[in-house]
Amino acid sequence: MPQNQNNSAKTYVGLMSGTSLDGVDGVMVRLSEPVDKADAGMQIIATAYIPFDAGLRQQAMRLQQTSENELHHEALLANDLARTYAACVKKLQTAAGGQTVHAIGVHGQTIRHRPELGYTRQTNNPALLAELTGVDVIADFRTRDIAAGGQGAPLVPAFHRAVFGRAGASSVVANIGGISNISVLAADGSTRGFDTGPGNVLMDAWVLQHQGKSYDANGDWAAHGAVIPALLSSMMDEAYLKMLPPKSTGRDLFHPAWLQGKLQGFEAASPVDVQATLCEFTALTLVNDIARHAADATHVYVCGGGAFNHQLLQRLQALLAAQSCAAVVSSTAVLGVAPEQVEALAFAWLAQRFCLRLPGNLADVTGAAGGRILGALYPA
C-alpha cells in the first residue's frame, strides 16, 4: 500500500462488524489529509479482531426479525456491542504502544435495512464507546445518505476508488461478507457500485444447520457437492437480482426463511448439494453483474470473508471465463491490503472525511441527491 509521511496525518481507528455476525474487525491507520487519491498516504499501524461470543451473536440474530420487546433487546445489544468495540480499540492501542487516536469510525451492526421505506438501522451505543475509550467516535454513517434520497449503501465504493483506483485501468472490487457488493472502478475514473445479492449469509446458515459450524472453511463442504440446476434457477428468479442499480439489500431479504421457500420441492436433496448450489448462487450473482457492468475489467479483487472461500473464488474465475470476461480473480492482498481489513479501513477513512467535513458517499452509487458529509460525532 502507498505510504507517505505527512505533517497533517492523523491516526484513526476503523471498526466493522458485518452481516456475517462473526465478530468485529479493527484497524488503526495513519492517514494523510485527505486520502482522496491512490498515491495518498495510508499506513496501517495495528489490526485486531474480537469474535462475538455466542450470546451476543444470538442477540443480533434475534433482532434480524420482529420479536417481542425489540426496543429493550436492541438497547442491550447496543451496550454489549459498544463494550466489544471498546475491547477491540484497547487491543489496537496496546499493539500500537498507546498511540494517540484522533477519532474512531464505527459502522455498528445492521439489524434493519429498508431504504425503500426511508430508514436503515445500525445498532450501537457510540456514546458509551466514547466514554469507554476516551476518543471521539463517528457513527451512523448511512442515514444522511438515505435522508438525501439514497440507498445508504454501499458506502465502500468511494473508499475503493480513493485507494484502489488506477487511471486508465478498469477493475472491480468485490466485497463478499454476509451480503456481496461490487465497486466498478472504470478506466475513465467513474465509479459505480451496488449490492449484488447474498455473499456468505445463506451458506453460513446452511452449514450451521447441518454441520454445526459457523462457516464452510475454504468452501470444502461445497466443493464435495454437486449443483442442483433447478434449485439454482429458482434462486436466480429472485426479483432483486433483476433490479437496476442503485440498489442495496441485506438479511431483510436473504435469510433462512427465504431459502426454505426456495427448497420447497427439493426436500430430498442432499444437504451438501444444497451447499454447492448456494456457493454457485453467490458466485453467479456476482459474475452476472460484473459481466453487465464491468465486462472490460482486467481484475476482480475480492475482500471480506468470501476471500477465504477457495471454492467460491474458483467458481468466480470459472464463471467469468464462461461469460468471456478476461478478469483475473485475486484477493486485495495483492494490492497490499489484507481482505479482512478493507471494510474497517473504509470506516476509518469515512471518519476522516467527517472530521474534514468532506463528502463520504458517491451519489452515482447510492442514488442520493449529491455528496453528503456522513456520520454523527460523539465527543470523548
Rank of each mutant, 00 (worst) to 15 (best):
G189S: 05
A269C: 12
A326V: 14
S270I: 02
F164L: 15
N6I: 11
I104R: 08
D237W: 06
L278V: 05
A60M: 14
L31D: 01
L21S: 10
L313N: 12
Q122D: 02
D25P: 05
D252F: 01
R357C: 07
V137M: 05
L335V: 14
L92V: 09
A326G: 02
A380I: 06
L155A: 04
E280N: 14
F52V: 01
W258P: 01
I290R: 04
A363P: 11
T191L: 10
E340Y: 06
T249A: 05
H224S: 12
A327Y: 09
T191Q: 11
Q311M: 10
T84M: 15
D216H: 06
Q275H: 05
C88Y: 06
P51K: 12
A158C: 03
R315I: 03
V89H: 10
T249M: 06
L312P: 03
P51A: 12
R62C: 02
R142Q: 08
P157E: 08
A344M: 09
N200W: 14
H224F: 01
R161I: 00
C355E: 15
Q5Y: 14
G168C: 13
A369S: 15
D252K: 03
R62V: 00
T19G: 09
R144S: 12
V274G: 03
I182N: 02
A369D: 15
F52T: 04
S214G: 03
R121A: 07
L202Y: 00
A38S: 14
F194I: 04
R192G: 14
A321V: 08
I179C: 02
L81M: 14
Y85K: 01
V101P: 05
K90V: 07
C279Y: 00
A348F: 01
A295L: 02
Q43S: 13
D273Q: 07
V29P: 05
L358Q: 14
I182M: 13
A187M: 04
A186H: 15
D25E: 15
Y215G: 00
A82Y: 01
S331K: 09
E68R: 13
A257R: 13
A82D: 07
M236V: 01
S190W: 15
Q122P: 09
D25C: 04
F159Q: 00
N181F: 01
V24K: 04
L92Q: 09
G18D: 10
T66K: 08
G193S: 07
R62K: 12
Y240A: 00
R251C: 00
D36E: 11
T366I: 08
N218Y: 08
A169R: 13
A60N: 13
R114D: 09
T66G: 10
V135E: 03
L63E: 06
H210C: 02
T277W: 11
S180Q: 10
Q260A: 15
L155F: 04
K242G: 03
I146W: 01
D195W: 00
L128N: 06
R142E: 08
L356F: 04
Y119L: 12
D296K: 15
F347I: 07
L319G: 00
Q122C: 09
A139P: 13
K10V: 09
T84C: 11
Q275N: 07
F159A: 01
A321S: 13
G336M: 13
S214L: 15
S8M: 05
V137E: 03
G375W: 00
V135R: 02
P51R: 11
